[in-house]
Amino acid sequence: MKSIVLDAQGITKSYNGKKVLDGISLQIRSTDFYVLMGPNGSGKSTLLSILAGTNPFDTGCVKICGDDISQGRLEARKHIGYVPQENFCSDFLTGRENLWYFADLLGLPKSQAKAEIEKLLKMMDLEDEADRRVAEYSGGMKKKLEVATALLGDSEILFLDEPTTGLDPTVRKDFLSLVQEINKQGTAVLLVTHIGEDAEIASRVGFMIQGEIVAEGSPEELKEISGLKSTIIVDATPRSEELMLLLASLSGDCIVIERGESFELTCEEPRGMVPKIVNMLQESGYNMHRVGTRPPSLDDIFYKLTACPIGGEA
């Protein structure tokens, strides 16, 4: 049954007179794996901290499993599993000791706490490392341990604040699979990120800029809305602003961004563009290394729908 776990209506928040969140409403169901994407400063972490009950807000209402979270009420917090950006588990304690700390804070009976801790250590594949101090853990292991602390007790929704930052690609992929598995087992997930790849496995994605959610839907729906068919990758030297302008001038509806070693063009109608680009590069005397296409990523779709690069500032 798809029950509403999180219901936020009209959330506003200002810092020093500047509006950071502008009337945001969001509903998350028990089966949702919701990823909120936005560039730095878009307000996504502020929103997450408000929804997790750690940050007061100006107006609006947040209900977790029907319980109002405002006014510091503790009841709604029973259902929240929150993992902030920083590694909050103590380096001086072992993984198991950290889990016991949070289980005791929640007041779990000893037998229940023991069973849950062992189950979570197994789920996170931390059984063999459970009695080592967290100081000896890798970044990925620390993140898994923190997710385990968030799943203790009656957590109905898992809030993850940029959990993959600093993780290498393989660990990131494993971590996201784990979160997906947790979601499949019945815990709703709300993850905020500025990395498009993190959102590929989500059931719903929200695009956030300047304190507002401007687009929402499944990755497929967002792709449909954006109208993007494919992204063209151009790797040519010398890489210059002039080349970027030349690429942009080839078609009015193309957006050109520099990503790593290459330029990427997202166009609504990419057909016929590749020969045009090849000709242009040859005529202008550029050394062409690669011109190819790939399906549009959520980063591309974000850029297309918000006109704001995900890696930039909101």
Binding site: V83, S90, F159
Partner: peptide
């Protein structure tokens, strides 16, 4: 040190009374 590591954000999201902690 706990503040630096955001422990209080985590604790604030839990049904924990600051006075008892």
């Amino acid at each position: 040190a706990d503040r630096d590591h955001d422990l209080y954000s985590k604790l604030s999201s839990m049904p924990v009374n600051p006075v008892y902690e």
